[in-house]
């Protein structure tokens, strides 16, 4: 197990390194001069050149990459080109809590809607609820988040004034209910279908028949014997969802005016703020690999068969 953890950890570092390098390379492949972006369209060539020198852009790409890596090893993500004097790390740390709140909220919505809906639909196949859930899932999967978000804002915030219109404030949870719901609806729809299918399969398995032959009550069979199986695929995908969301969810953040990592990344790309681009990309990559690591570990706790196979 510990050997596996070490191998896995090295792999994670390699992946993050690769992703960051790609982000760096792509930022330089863009046919625009970051110094010009900083200086503004009216600036004289001399002013642009002076800014380029200030930012170190007049050095070779290799030398820039080398000093970038050198900083990175010391945990320094650099200083923003655009936001004068602000470090990339401080900007990300300022945006991250909002995105984290939103991401966790989205995953919670996915779980509390998706799993019960799937379980009930599987237990009463072809019932009214099952059909209703199928329709709901179709809606949840096909409704574009930007449309759904705007509809929620229009009705719940603007017309009926239940929720705040836009932005963030105190208490934060109040401002996060609609955005996280919008974020989670698609996943909830997907999970309800997946859980339904898994449970229908599990209900046909011999060990469920045996549990019934033992005279166990249906409630015990559901919670002890059935739901665990349905959770195996869900845990994988939930972990991936969380990792993905934590990297920033631009559309949701934009619609609801949340100053999260997604907006930060988008702004940095539109202004060619190279340190900020590589920084936000790196954060997204780290969340992704860390979550997939956690998923793998969590797997061994839910499914004992996985634990056994690892040693070989």
């Amino acid at each position: 197990m510990s050997g596996w953890v070490i191998r896995r950890f090295l792999q994670m570092i390699l992946v993050v390194f690769g992703v960051v390098t790609l982000a760096f390379v792509f930022a330089f492949l863009v046919p625009a001069n970051p110094a010009r972006m900083v200086a503004g369209p009216q600036a004289s060539p001399a002013a642009v050149a002076s800014i380029a020198h200030q930012l170190g852009l007049d050095r070779s790409t290799w030398s820039q990459y080398w000093s970038f890596l050198g900083r990175l090893v010391h945990g320094n993500l650099g200083i923003s080109f655009v936001l004068q004097g602000r470090t990339v790390a401080s900007e990300i740390l300022r945006a991250l809590p909002y995105t984290a709140f939103l991401a966790v909220g989205g995953v919670i919505w996915e779980v509390i809607i998706g799993i019960p809906a799937g379980v009930i639909a599987a237990y009463k196949p072809r019932s009214f609820f099952d059909r209703f859930a199928t329709l709901g899932a179709l809606f949840g999967l096909s409704a574009p988040p930007f449309w759904l978000g705007l509809m929620l804002i229009y009705f719940l915030s603007y017309r009926w004034s239940i929720f705040p219109l836009n932005g963030v404030g105190s208490p934060l949870i109040w401002y996060m209910i609609l955005p996280s719901f919008t974020l989670g609806v698609g996943g909830a729809a997907f999970y309800s279908r997946m859980v339904r299918t898994t449970i229908l399969q599990v209900l046909r398995s011999p060990f469920i028949e045996f549990a019934r032959l033992k005279g166990m009550p249906e409630r015990t069979i559901l919670f002890r014997h059935v739901v665990r199986h349905a959770l195996i695929p869900v845990v994988t995908m939930l972990g991936m969802d969380l990792g993905y969301f934590l990297g920033g969810v631009l559309i949701i953040e934009s619609i609801f005016g949340i100053p999260g990592v997604g907006q930060l990344a988008f702004a940095s790309i539109s202004t060619l703020d190279v340190p900020m681009i590589t920084g936000t990309v790196m954060v997204a990559a780290i969340f992704m690999v860390v979550m997939s690591f956690i998923v793998d570990v969590a797997y061994t706790f839910i499914d004992p068969r996985v634990r056994l196979n690892r040693g070989q």
Binding site: P206, F207, F210, H229, I302, D303
Partner: peptide, 8 residues
Amino acid sequence: LSSLNPLV
């Protein structure tokens, strides 16, 4: 082989 629940 399958009458016992593999996860319990």
